[in-house]
Every structure is written in structure tokens, then in C-alpha cells.
Design a protein around this nucleic acid. Sequence first.
DNA 1: CGAAAGTATGTGTATTCTGCACCTAATTTT
DNA 2: AAAATTAGGTGCAGAATACACATACTTTCG
Lengths: 160, 160
Amino acid sequence: MTSKHRRQAAFRRLHEAMVDLTAIMNLPQRDEALIAEAGVQLDRALFPLLVGIQRFGPISVGELAERAGRDHTTVSRQVARLAELGLVERRPGAVDKRVKEALITDAGRQVTDALDAARQRIAGPVFEHWSDRDVLELERLMRRFVDDLVSLSEVAKEDT
Amino acid sequence: MTSKHRRQAAFRRLHEAMVDLTAIMNLPQRDEALIAEAGVQLDRALFPLLVGIQRFGPISVGELAERAGRDHTTVSRQVARLAELGLVERRPGAVDKRVKEALITDAGRQVTDALDAARQRIAGPVFEHWSDRDVLELERLMRRFVDDLVSLSEVAKEDT
DNA sequence: CGAAAGTATGTGTATTCTGCACCTAATTTT
DNA sequence: AAAATTAGGTGCAGAATACACATACTTTCG
């Protein structure tokens, strides 16, 4: 029982840390600082979408919408804007012509690369006083945690 | 040099995990599931604010707004709604009568307790096959990481 | 002290974001 | 091949948000 309670307490503290982290990640000023440091011109709202397309593209509007937890019409409009800016390319899907895949262009990749580099400059110093071991452990455990969360929600979805 | 590159690679993977985690935390369906499981009636938008007031209250509108990264007028209206629902109480600050502190009421605490319990039921199973050590390590490292991030941004603010 | 500057909160208003209803095109099912 | 389903998109309406401005209180400084 004591062990169970210790776990629950750890769970609560972990959740607090997660909430804090999410709050930091969601701060508009964080994105703005990053955009400024990267020296790119990009609407804050398009930002996570561009990153998603870079990472998972070619990707359909529907899947992108599901990942973002937003309506597909909203995402459709935002992807259209990214296309207008020349940061992503639209093309009909090879196997299913209903889907209109989005994939990153060279210009788009320049932007995401600049953002990655800027983030490294801004946030990299956080780990200055961290041991290699702790950095790697945090990375390993957080990755595992996220993956477990995803599979949990996928199981929940199948129950529907 | 190799060590530096290993760190940069770990940093990049860590950032990906953070983005994934933030995406999960921001899913509207996640909040909805939690609210349903807790059996409470609460607007999704008021949710993080209530938690913030429970955790940091009594707290001013301004500080709450800064934590949330939103304009203080937006937060002012949302806190007013929480007060109408009887979940938080407003009162003039003891030392500075300009501030109108928000603090959680008994009814508000019942809601946050129900949410905590619901979260434990929904997300607790994630750690079922985790070792005690890994759970505690994740909690420790994540907490430290968040704290370091906060102090970094505070330093940056002073430079302004 | 007391006027001026600064700060915390709140209201009116315009803009932007978002989602629902509905449409078309393409695919899958029967 | 007709019916049902799925992907994407447009029109419109409501919600969320921030900017401009107002008010009340506090701090600063002559």
C-alpha cells in the first residue's frame, strides 16, 4: 500500500511538472522569441503545423487535423496559407486522389532548420550543468512516457 | 566534439518528445474525456485557469495572465466567469487594494479534486509496467528541467 | 504634503480563430 | 453500378482574444 501511495504522489508531482512544461511550451512569447532569434517571418499559428508537415509529411489534412486536435476545415485553411507562403507544397495523393498531401518545400525546410538552430542557441544552455547521464535519461524516459500515452489513447479509441 | 554532438542529438530528440507531449496535453478531446470522467460541468477554457488558481492562489489577475501567456483582459473575463460559477472567490488584496485576488472556493476545490482523481483513473495505468525507479527518475528530471527552463527565461527577462 | 507618474483591473470594440452545416470529388461497399 | 463512405473545401456564425481606453489605487518626487 505504501508503495502504491508513493506512486500516486509521484504521479501527482509528475503531472504538475507536465502542466508547467505545457504552459511554458504554449507561451506566445516563447514562439515569438524563437521566431525573432531565427530571423524568419512566420505567423505563430502556422508554426506547429509547419513543424508537423516537416516531421510527418507527406501528410494529409485529415491526419494533420487529428494530430492537432482541430477541425479539418481549420487545418485546411492553415495549410493553404502555408502553401501560399511557399513553405509547403500540395499535391494529390498517389494512391487516393481525394487526399491532398502536404509536404515541406526547400524554403519551408530552411525555416524549420533556422528554428531548430535558434532553439539550440536559446535553450541549449539549460543543460550546461547537467550530466550526460541525466540528459540521456530524461530523453529516454520522456520518449517512453509519450509513446505509452499514445498507445493508451489508441486503445481507448478502439473501445469506441 | 563527439560528446557535444551526442548532446545536441539528445536535445533534438528531447525536443521532439516535448512537442509530442505538448500536443497530447493540448488535445481538446483529452480535456473533454477528463471532464466527463470527473463528472463535472466546466467550460474547457476555464479549466487551466481554475487549476492555476488552486495551485498558486490567492493570485492576481496580472500574474495569472503572465503565467497563461494571455492578455490580462482575457484572463479578467475568464476569472469573472469562474467567480460567477462559484468556483473561485474574488477579494481585494490586503496590502494593495488595486489587485483583486482570486482564490479557490470549496466548490472549486471539489472540482479540482474530482479532476485529479479522474486523471489518476485514466492515466495512472500508463505506469503499470514501469519500475518505481523509472517513475521517480522521470519525475525528478522533468521537475528539474522545468525549473531550469523557468530560471533561464527569468534571466532573459532581466536582460530586457 | 500633494501633484505626477505608474500599476492593476476592467469595459467597449474590432479582428482573428474555430467549428458546424453543407458541398463536391473520389473511393469503397454491396 | 448504385449506395454509402471518406477527404477536402467554402460560407457563415459564434467564441476567443487583444488593443484602445477608462478607473481606482499606489508610488515617486518636487
